[in-house]
Amino acid sequence: MCEDKEEARSEAGAAASPRRLCWSRPPPPLPDTRGLCCAKLLRKNGKPKKVLMFPEEGWARSASSSYWTLQPSWWRRSRCKVVEVAGTRRHSTHARMVISGANAVYIVGTFKHMGTDADFKLYLTTNVTQADFNMGYTMTGTLERGSRSSNTFQMTHFAVLRRCDHDTHHLKNA
């Protein structure tokens, strides 16, 4: 008898308010940023951009959960603030942004309180492969660490900038 009452209630509730499937529209496709100017993409939105670092196989030191944030200066177009985050350590410096061609940029600087490999060259480009673009990367590049005085640099990391870091307003509106 209780089961009949529950079935009657569920049928009455279903008749009063028909079930609608609330499917939202899929978000529009993200814009294709391949071949655009790196410096303009880094300055977009005025927020720091997170650069993920993947260590090269030949590099001897460990690099667990390492990433950089890049914040271009609003008062000087050729400068940016670089913060290296490796675990709980943070090192920050101001670096130069050197535009190399239409779709590449070098970020060159020195971390002052580091003993070894204080100098760095970060190369980023928007000429990404179709596979990298499908993985969600806007920019790819390399990081070289070493000494500027002796001009000995070694490639240490593969650097990527994810697409969602540039288009957060695009994802919020979707």
Rank of each mutant, 00 (worst) to 15 (best):
M1A: 12
M1F: 07
E3V: 06
E3T: 11
E3P: 01
K5T: 11
K5S: 11
E6L: 14
E6Q: 14
A8P: 02
A8D: 13
S10C: 12
E11I: 13
E11H: 14
A12K: 15
G13L: 15
A15E: 14
A15N: 13
A16Y: 04
A16E: 07
A16D: 03
R19G: 08
R19M: 08
L21W: 03
L21Y: 00
S24K: 00
R25Y: 00
P26M: 10
P27V: 09
P27W: 01
P28V: 05
P29F: 02
P29S: 09
L30V: 07
D32I: 05
R34P: 02
R34L: 01
G35D: 01
G35E: 03
G35T: 05
L36E: 13
L36T: 15
C38L: 08
C38P: 13
A39H: 14
L41I: 06
L41R: 08
L42D: 04
L42H: 05
L42Y: 04
R43C: 12
R43S: 10
K44Q: 12
N45I: 07
N45A: 12
N45E: 07
G46L: 11
G46M: 11
K47Q: 05
K49F: 06
K49L: 11
V51N: 03
M53L: 15
M53R: 11
P55W: 03
R61V: 07
S62C: 03
S62Q: 10
A63T: 12
S64H: 04
S65N: 13
S66Y: 02
Y67L: 08
W68C: 13
W68V: 14
Q71L: 12
W74L: 14
R77M: 10
R79S: 06
K81N: 11
V82W: 00
E84L: 05
V85I: 05
V85D: 01
A86E: 09
G87K: 04
G87D: 02
T88Y: 00
R89N: 08
R90L: 00
H91Y: 06
H91D: 09
S92M: 02
S92A: 01
T93N: 00
R96G: 03
M97E: 04
V98E: 06
V98F: 03
I99Y: 09
G101A: 10
A102V: 08
N103D: 07
N103C: 09
A104K: 15
F111G: 04
F111R: 05
K112V: 02
H113E: 10
D117W: 09
F120H: 07
F120P: 05
K121T: 11
L124K: 09
T125P: 02
T126R: 04
V128E: 05
V128T: 12
T129I: 08
Q130R: 15
D132N: 15
M135G: 09
M135C: 12
Y137Q: 11
T138R: 05
M139T: 06
T140M: 10
T142P: 01
E144V: 07
E144G: 06
G146A: 06
R148G: 03
S149G: 00
S149K: 10
N151R: 13
F153I: 12
H157K: 05
F158S: 15
A159G: 07
A159P: 06
V160F: 04
V160A: 06
L161R: 02
L161T: 03
R162L: 10
R163K: 14
H166C: 09
D167E: 07
D167A: 01
D167W: 07
D167N: 07
H170Y: 01
K172T: 00
A174S: 04
